[in-house]
Amino acid sequence: MKLEGAVLRNLLARRRRAEWIFKIAASGALLFALGTLGVLLLDVLRDGLGWLDWDFLTHFPSRKPEQAGILSALAGTFYLMILTILIAFPLGVGAAIYLEEYAKKHWFSRIVEVNIANLAGVPSVIYGLLGLELFVRTMGLGRSLIAGALTMALLVLPIIIIAAREAIRTVPNPIREASYALGASRWQTVWHQVLPVAFPGMLTGSILAFSRAIGEASPLITLGALTYIAFLPDGLTSPFTVIPIQIFNWVSRPQKAFLNCAAAAILVMLAILLAMNAVAVFLRHRTQRRMTL
């Protein structure tokens, strides 16, 4: 078929038009997402930036908005995260190692796999209810830091298992074969060959999971974490609060000025999230460099 003159010009013009429409639609989608985020950020910055100072970070919450700070929530978030990481990371990595390196691939491991993927999609409130029943009541831990950390660990565990399994799967099989061929046992192969290669990948996946958990308020509210705490947690069984709960508490106050406190707390939250994600990106970058060396 040979196209000439007006027919060809017409065809090309139509294609250019389709090209143009698609480009506009795609960039429109991006602009919408960025725009919403930008408006949110601007709003929060306008309300909160003026309130965000050293005093805000080092003061306990107060009935007077001018004196209110997030020290107890900041400390609570910090302790809760450390505990959650200490509980969830070893458990998740252990489960992933079992599923990838030890479990025989048959119907049982399939069922476990499907269920882990499902658990990752369960709403966080449900985990809160589970934590309330299991840790707070049955195990008698009360509304304590450790009960909160255990609940948060359950919440992120499926995501960590999935991330760790993905990381383990990126370890090339010839590496395992070489290790076994040199007389290594399964555990020696996992410890000396699989984990060093997979570890940074596990870490980045897990940090993303933890940074999601850090912003969760609902499971902890269900659990009964307190919203007003004027002291620092002094042990595993101490009552606690976290930044998202503090924000939730402030926005539900009638006084307008507490909205500024909430906005400032959101800024602190965003800074923490940004820092955690930066660590994840840094670790990923460092691994890639080491692997291609």
Binding site: P172, P174, I175, E177, A178, S179, Y180, A181, L182, G183, A184, Q188, H192, Q193, P196, V197, R290, M291, L293
Partner: peptide, 30 residues
């Protein structure tokens, strides 16, 4: 025990992502 007596080299070179020294020392260290 079988694999310690009977060594194997594979189709594609598969060094461990470690130093040259650690590659060779891996077996004896195990």
């Amino acid at each position: 025990q079988v694999r310690l007596q009977i060594g194997m080299v594979f189709q594609k070179p598969n060094p461990f992502p470690k130093s040259i020294y650690d590659n060779v020392a891996f077996g004896p260290r195990l």
